[in-house]
């Protein structure tokens, strides 16, 4: 920059300002004359994030999301299997749901700063806190899923077992879906702004995971519903994710780039491959079923970790907080 430039229309520094995708000029000009092109420039405080990113460990919390989905959808699947005379599938998924929900609980407790105070989760019932409601939900679901599995394996109290299975199946969708609210009910742009689609991503992912588990654990003669579920789950997951990405606008790039982008692409690929493999070959080949199941499970996990990573990325860069808010303000003003 030179002194001569400084005498011009705009301060010479102008061109260097703004690390955002666009140029500041639009917005500046936009003060007097409304800018035609949405402006994506922003300023920040030394590039520091505005909001605090979650302090959660990805393995704990993305793992928790994945396992919760697997458990919840698994309970529904188990009930369906049981009702339609697929007892081995039902038992396998009851067990997997118990294991998954136990695992998710461990992950949750592990992630606490003060694990010994886990019980404080039951001090209040807070309708405004998805985590509070989720904990109470798990408090009901966990025993149901546990009883369903234990009674099935031991063969004791079959009536009670059916009630437990039905209970777990009733609560299962909630368990699979509420974690999306848990994530969306934050200031993390990639999660919050995607709150409409995120539950569908999550239940799709959960269904895919459950189907994957069923494909692996259930005998081939029982796996027809699993194959259909795989297609249903994978389609729901991928479609919802795409819709979300689109709706998110510039924030959507957090799902396309970096670690999150790689995970989301892997999820899409694995879902498609798993569902296709399972649907086309899973009925004939046990190996294909297992491979397809494994792909679906991995895809589901990838989705959760991808969503998690996109959230982290969107929290750490102030642009994802500032620019959408700026646009909102300008839209309001306009």
């Amino acid at each position: 920059m030179t002194g001569s430039e400084a005498g011009g229309e705009l301060p010479g520094r102008e061109a260097l300002v703004g690390k955002g995708p666009g140029r500041r000029k639009g917005r500046r000009g936009g003060r007097g004359e409304r800018a035609m092109v949405p402006d994506a420039t922003f300023t920040s405080y030394y590039g520091k994030p505005i909001i605090n990113a979650p302090v959660w460990e990805p393995l704990d919390i993305a793992g928790y999301f994945f396992l919760g989905g697997l458990a919840g959808a698994g309970s529904v699947f188990a009930a369906g299997a049981q009702l339609t005379g697929r007892p081995r599938t039902a038992r396998a998924l009851k067990i997997s749901s118990l294991v998954a929900i136990s695992g998710s609980l461990v992950a949750l407790v592990h992630d606490l700063g003060r694990p010994a105070r886990f019980a404080n989760m039951l001090r209040v019932i807070k309708p405004t806190s998805p985590m509070s409601l989720g904990t109470w939900l798990l408090t009901a679901y966990g025993p149901a899923a546990g009883a369903a599995a234990v009674l099935d394996v031991t063969g004791l109290f079959p009536r009670l077992g059916r009630v437990a299975t039905a209970g777990a199946a009733t609560l299962g969708p909630a368990v699979a879906a509420y974690t999306a609210v848990l994530a969306a009910d934050t200031a993390v742009p990639a999660w919050h702004e995607g709150y409409r689609e995120l539950p569908f991503v999550f239940v799709g992912s959960a269904a895919a995971a459950a189907s994957g588990m069923a494909l692996i654990a259930a005998p081939a003669e029982e796996n027809a519903p699993a194959r259909s579920t795989a297609v249903f789950g994978a389609a729901l997951e991928v479609t919802a994710a795409k819709l979300m990405e689109h709706r998110l606008g510039m924030i959507g790039e957090t799902y396309r780039t970096g670690r999150a982008g790689r995970l989301m692409r892997a999820a899409t690929a694995l879902s498609a491959a798993g569902a296709a493999g399972a649907a086309l070959l899973g009925g004939r080949s046990r190996t294909a079923a297992v491979l397809g199941g494994a792909a679906l499970l991995t895809a589901s996990a990838c989705t959760r970790f991808g969503v998690f990573a996109a959230g982290m990325r969107s929290a750490e860069d102030p642009k994802y907080t500032v620019v959408p808010q700026r646009r909102r303000l300008e839209a309001d003003a306009g």
Binding site: L122, R123, V124, I125, K126, P127, T128, S132
Partner: peptide, 21 residues
Amino acid sequence: SWPVYRQFRGEDRSGRGESAM
């Protein structure tokens, strides 16, 4: 002393106020 109890007894139904103290 259990906030949940206080939540339902008192006015602070949402558990965000004095019941949580």
